[in-house]
Design a binder for these strands. Sequence first.
DNA 1: GCTATTTGACCATA
DNA 2: TATGGTCAAATAGC
Length: 317
Amino acid sequence: MESGWSWEQKILIGELMQGMELAKQLRVHLNATSSSTAETRDFLVQRILSSYEKALLVLNWSGSAGQTQPIGVTATIPESPLSINGSPTGEDCDGGLKDNHCLNEAPKKRKMMPRWTDQVRVSSENGLEGPHDDGYSWRKYGQKDILGAKYPRSYYRCTYRNTQNCWATKQVQRSDEDPTLFEVTYRGTHNCGSEQQTIPQPATPEKDNNNQNHIQQQSGLRVNTQDLDKKELASPFTFASAYESIKSGGSYSPSFISPATSEPNYYSFPPFGLKPLESDYSDIISANTSATNSPIVDLDFPFDHVDLDPSFPSFFS
DNA sequence: GCTATTTGACCATA
DNA sequence: TATGGTCAAATAGC
């Protein structure tokens, strides 16, 4: 599996380089005395740790590459890079345990699903709470009290599950320690392209204070991710947002791009060896960077420094 | 009437 | 057997 290893190499290199760059930034921030950078420092530390953790996990996973079973991994990385390519054994059957066309795959379907977790911090200073809009249209189908968890876990599936056979799902769990922190676990990948269709739906916050999937960050809601490593891809949604922002004369602050390298990492970082499906990217990225005015730390840099690949639009079209 | 959410029940998994 | 995940009927909102 040569191409697979190539992806791993890219991920590894990217993660390690990013860790180094983040460390450099951290050093700069450590020299700063302003208390306003405390959050930034903390964020950088988290990202550095996340980058190296991911690199290690990639190494670990590469040892298992070629196997048909997903490795036993933590919840922060996808469980099965091997089943994500829209194959019939992948998300197409996820959740469809009772669907006839999926019964043959039923026993291992859940484990075969690619899965990864975002941690999204949302401050409620504007009276809004709940997780971000990740660019997709989700429909809540369940809520469950989880043992040992203070807050219930909410279950969402793609709105277009029936119409477009899109089996992507996500779970939203509010952190016990930090109620402003939401852990969003994604399963499966979108094949509905709904991120293009449903982005700015008005929020209905009164319906579900724990989980609002259509809160618009543009309205001033601050969203920081604690786990950007998995989102350091150029998602269609993100780039589209950035592009629109640039077009409108603004700048863009894509935290997923190393400011030192000034290179968009849209060539790499599929979630751990995942084929770079556009749905994967948007699923991951949009979890934190769907806003064009993302306030994430001090990684701002003019987006016009980024050489957008001329083929970029077709990248996700 | 249509669509989304809530919630109890059922099923799968460890 | 306990727990998590999903289903589907009931309900609410537009």
